[in-house]
Amino acid sequence: MAEAASTETPSLSEQYLLKKKDENSDVGSKPLEAKEEVKPETAISEEKAEEAPIAASEEKVEDTTAAVAEESTEINPAAENNSDDASAVETESSETVEQQNSDEQEAADEAPQIKLETAPADFRFPTTNQTRHCFTRYIEYHRCIAAKGEGAPECDKFAKYYRSLCPSEWIERWNEQRENGTFPGPL
């Protein structure tokens, strides 16, 4: 019942979550890496377009890109000043200097790299003792799997909950017990 209510209205923690969410919650820095790969090329290509009339041969273009790289290191502090929120790590990681890019970085910074989300407070377990909470979530997941089939997306949240709540040592033990058929719970 409590779960049904929680699915309808966003919980407080969800409301307080920072607005922009990354799709892949596990490793948030992946989009950043992708950006790093893309940005230098775009910057260079723009510079290339400017330098194209002057630089005729391919080798000269190579030289100019090197020059551009040097310039970018010079202009970098200015870009840092412009973007207030850009953290030092981000600016170091991206060597590009375009103003637009720094704006994009700000947006990327505002979004949390990892999603701050965990098992919600459960009204079945309002006390300090959360042992049964963990156990129940573990059983709920495996019953869900049994009912909906392996890898059913609606079971993922239970997996997330029991992983958040149970010590990994317990999970390992229970997994072994399930394999051996000695798990004490109602699966």
Partner: peptide, 15 residues
């Protein structure tokens, strides 16, 4: 102190 009013954002296990 005992009551958990809002949903926590992070769970940390201290073993």
């Amino acid at each position: 102190m005992d009551e958990v009013v809002v949903d926590p954002a992070i769970t940390i296990k201290a073993i």
